[in-house]
Amino acid sequence: MSALLQIRNLRVAIEGKEILRGVSLDVYAGEVHAIMGPNGSGKSTLAAVLAGREEYEVLEGEVLFDGQNLLEMEPEERARAGLFLAFQYPVEIPGVSMATFLRTALNEVRKARGQEPLDPIQFLSYARERMSWLGMEPDFLQRAVNEGFSGGEKKRGEIFQLLLLEPRLAILDETDSGLDIDALKIVASGVNRMRSPERSFIVITHYQRLLNYIVPDVVHVLFDGRIVRTGGRELALELEERGYDWLRSEGELVLPTLGEQ
């Protein structure tokens, strides 16, 4: 069986500067991959390109998602095919309620899956159940999208959307940044609840801490636009202990390695 996500020698630039310099990665259904690395290594660029941000220029390489050429798809087509990005900085949209936004989004995704749309009442009960999993306030759906949310509320909101949309591949872009330990546990419990043999995750993080709660199958180290190390979860612990500096000395010598599937 081929991987759900296949990234082959992906080179990406923004404003003429090459950020990803040949990334290859296979993520199989049911796997949780962590991508770690220092600031500026290209982690968020990888997430952005996968989600379909247009300001990035793909220089080379290809990405297949469930066999489809992901890079040729519009962002909304990617979402409807089952790709989800939990934003590092969720966008505030005054004037659009969470309920309107999420019901519209969910019904688009349901339509793509061949399911009937949910009416407002069905949506409400479906959404409320998932809100309770994350201990969210009942007025959440009436608030404008991310407007005036605390950092923790925004991140929780992203995980809530993940629970709602039930993607096949969820990319979490530094979802742990700015979270205290209680919020981190709630976010992780939401993610763990969604783990299944059909669903994959890419967890992008700077710190090991999140991986105590979302235990990855594979850990990659992204450094200067390349994956320089791939290993099991013990690699994350090693990074926690030694930092990223020891990679800096060997960085240029280490060749990209693929997942051990």
Binding site: E54, R78, A79, L85, I93, F101, A105, E108, L165
Partner: peptide, 8 residues
């Protein structure tokens, strides 16, 4: 982009 990334 945020809205589109959710399938809209």
């Amino acid at each position: 982009f945020y809205l589109r990334s959710r399938g809209i």
